[in-house]
């Protein structure tokens, strides 16, 4: 779905390669200053490259950038994404207006996606009246409203509360079954538990996942890891109900 081939960027990324297969949920775990945000910017075309990134058979260069971007959804905690409109509904419509969707299609899509993500009651609310967690939830929904093939989440869960984080992860995993590919670039171990594959980005190099104390473990992951060591359960959990289910069926 997405390939990055022989990326060289300043003295940082050297002959860097990445392959994200179709319909996968891939996580890249990185500490501070590991190169996460630069990678996101390269995939998003914010740092320009020529024929390094290939998304759904489109090789990113200055001639293809617009087509490439229609296949991509992106949320980043580093781009200072700001809302442009007062109301949630208008914010959801904006990416579709940019893609010249007719009005009836925009309304249909907003209805559909708000029902899916259980935010119908927020549609007529002002963005200023939303909690920080809901604003972050909205950013993820906006990123996929145009039905991209790949969504890149760069520390997108940082300011979400547990309920919203679990809702988004559950819904994205369902969308994966319908053809969405997810790349989760994060420092939060909790959001990676259900990934098909986890990599570690360390000093601009990609490695396979191994336990690493540099990443934040939530209480539930920490507890389930300790119970796993005692052979009480066989896997790690990030969700409290799933852990309880495994312990007390």
């Amino acid at each position: 779905m997405l390939s990055i081939n022989n990326l060289n960027y300043k003295d940082l990324y050297k002959d860097f390669n990445l392959e994200i297969p179709k319909n996968n949920f891939i996580s890249i775990l990185g500490t501070n200053r590991s190169g996460k945000t630069i990678l996101t910017k390269i995939i998003a075309g914010i740092i320009p490259t020529t024929d390094i990134c290939i998304l759904d058979n489109i090789s990113l260069n200055k001639n293809t950038v617009l087509t490439y971007l229609t296949k991509l959804g992106i949320v980043s905690n580093d781009f200072n994404q700001e809302f442009l409109f007062k109301k949630v509904k208008d914010e959801l419509a904006y990416p579709l207006l940019n893609l010249a969707y007719p009005e009836h299609k925009i309304n249909k899509r907003i209805k559909e996606i708000s029902k899916y993500f259980e935010i119908e009651d927020l549609l007529d609310k002002k963005i200023d009246d939303l909690s920080i967690s809901k604003r972050n939830l909205l950013l993820v929904i906006i990123s996929i409203i145009h039905e991209p093939r790949l969504v890149v989440l760069d520390d997108a869960f940082l300011e979400m509360d547990r309920v919203d984080k679990e809702l988004i992860l559950k819904k994205l995993l369902e969308l994966k079954k319908k053809g969405l590919t997810i790349l989760n670039i994060t420092s939060d171990l909790e959001t990676t538990i259900k990934s098909d594959k986890i990599y570690i980005l360390d000093n601009f190099k990609l490695e396979d996942y191994k336990e690493d104390s540099r990443f934040k473990e939530s209480f539930i992951i920490n507890l389930s890891n300790k119970l796993k060591e005692q052979e009480i359960i066989s896997q790690s959990y990030s969700n409290i109900d799933e852990l309880a289910g495994a312990l007390w069926k």
């Binding site: 500490t31 501070n32 905690n77 520390d155 940082l158 300011e159 104390s213 540099r214 934040k216």
Partner: peptide, 12 residues
Amino acid sequence: EEPFLYLDNKYS
């Protein structure tokens, strides 16, 4: 305000 936001384990 949110003292550990953006920071990994070591810096937090």
